[in-house]
Design a protein around this nucleic acid. Structure first.
Length: 397
DNA sequence: CTTCCACGGGAACACTGGGGTG
DNA sequence: CACCCCAGTGTTCCCGTGGAAG
């Protein structure tokens, strides 16, 4: 250990342990989730006793502690299960990453040491290989499908197969726990799949201001050094997070980034001003991140909205106007324009990312349109778009 | 009630990148 | 090796539909 390391330790007068504020950290104690914890533990402990637990569906908006709670119970059961030598396996899958049937079953099979190529096999083969490999012995496999709503378009077969798999197994049993932030997603499912998936349901309501306050206070105590936080810092974080429908993840992020900013300005304490700056930084980062992952075509669509709002005093445009601008822009850039139908999908995409507002309004005899406007500042957006070498040409329009 | 427009679901198609088969 | 099959993605094309002004 050199001096450098020592210095770094001394330098952080703010954080005792910054990692405790990251979303990956599972705390020892989950405030205001006792009911959900117990419910989940009851359902799952049946698996440890060799019984077959019900399938479970969990609803709640982002930052309501769904994933944290499941991982918390998962961790505990895993430990307990090993001690009791029970043959119960919990597998956590984020369906945003594994969003097709092939990928899900390939991942599942790999957990049981079965080699499956990234593609090439038929999905049927992957599925039956998975079945074969788990059915070798009497065991219980619990599949946790986080963001399960991402499977509805394209991967719904996955849910169908998982819900009927038990009738094709002789020794093993498979259960699933679905986690979704969209309570309406089951409406799109086949009725038999739906009823099988939601044998039990668990709801995670958004945290209210008092609960957020508790969470932050508890976490701040272990993550920060003593008396670093000034009086109004936590209430302000709570206030910002409450605007985001009680998103605890956002609140913890705010706290962490506030601390980083305080640290960067060589301040010994975190002030309200740091929280305000942190809120801006998080928003700016979010936008930059969103723009970065857009396809070129999406970026052109977004540029069209940007150009329109720079040129016009009114800030609201019909989908037709935006498409018109998009065609002109494609022409200008020498890129083949896509059809209107395709571009409407980009409108939806951009709205979900929070980069534009696109409300559908009925105009009576004059049909329906989306009224489209930017939902982020022009000055922020333009430099991000121009970063794309293909879009350099728009910088001087 | 009619009428009109864009919305949005779905079929069809093209293309990619891999495995299996003879 | 050549050839076909298959999953997945991105696209175009077609058409039924929602809903408020007229």
């Amino acid at each position: 250990m050199g001096k450098l390391f020592e210095n770094r330790i001394i330098e952080s007068s703010i954080f005792a342990n910054k990692e405790l504020l990251r979303p990956t950290y599972i705390p020892e104690n989950l405030p205001h989730r006792k009911k959900q914890l117990k419910s989940l533990a009851d359902t799952l402990s049946a698996a440890l006793k060799g019984k077959t637990p019900s399938n479970l569906l969990i609803y709640g908006k982002t930052g309501t502690g769904k994933t944290a709670t499941v991982k918390y119970v998962d961790k505990q059961l895993e430990e307990k299960g090993e001690k009791m030598d029970s043959k119960c396996t919990l597998i956590y899958i984020n369906c945003e990453l594994f969003d097709t049937q092939y990928r899900v079953f390939a991942y599942l099979a790999r957990v049981f040491n079965k080699k499956v190529p990234t593609f090439g096999w038929t999905t049927d083969k992957v599925y039956s290989e998975f079945k074969r490999v788990i059915d070798k012995e009497d065991r219980c496999v619990i599949v946790i499908l986080d963001e399960v709503d991402k499977l509805v378009t394209g991967g719904e077969e996955t849910l169908y197969n998982l819900s009927r798999i038990n009738s094709e197994l002789n020794n093993a049993r498979v259960r699933m726990i679905g986690i979704s932030n969209d309570p309406t997603f089951t409406e799109l499912l086949d009725t038999s799949v739906r009823s099988s998936m939601s044998e039990e349901e668990l709801i995670f309501p958004p945290y209210n201001a008092n609960q957020l306050q508790d969470i932050l206070t508890e976490r701040a105590e272990i993550a920060f050094n003593k008396s670093v936080i000034k009086g109004e810092v936590i209430p302000l974080c709570v206030a910002f997070a409450a605007q985001e429908h009680g998103n605890a993840m956002r609140a913890l992020d705010l706290l962490r980034v506030s601390g980083e900013i305080a640290e960067g300005t060589k301040s010994d304490v975190i002030t309200e001003e740091h929280v305000r700056l942190a809120n801006e930084k998080i928003e700016t980062d979010r936008i930059a991140e969103a723009v970065k992952i857009l396809s070129l075509q999406s970026k052109i669509v977004l540029s069209s909205v940007l150009l329109l709002s720079k040129k016009n005093s009114n800030r609201q445009f019909s989908s037709g106007e935006v498409y018109e601008m998009y065609r002109r822009l494609c022409d200008h850039l020498g890129i083949e324009a896509l059809t209107y139908r395709r571009v409407t999908d980009f409108f939806v995409e951009l709205e979900i990312l929070g980069l534009i507002n696109a409300k559908i309004v009925g105009r009576g005899r004059y049909g329906r349109t989306r009224e489209i406007s930017l939902s982020v500042p022009e000055v922020l957006l333009q430099p991000l778009l121009v970063e794309d070498p293909m879009l350099k040409a728009i910088s001087n329009i």
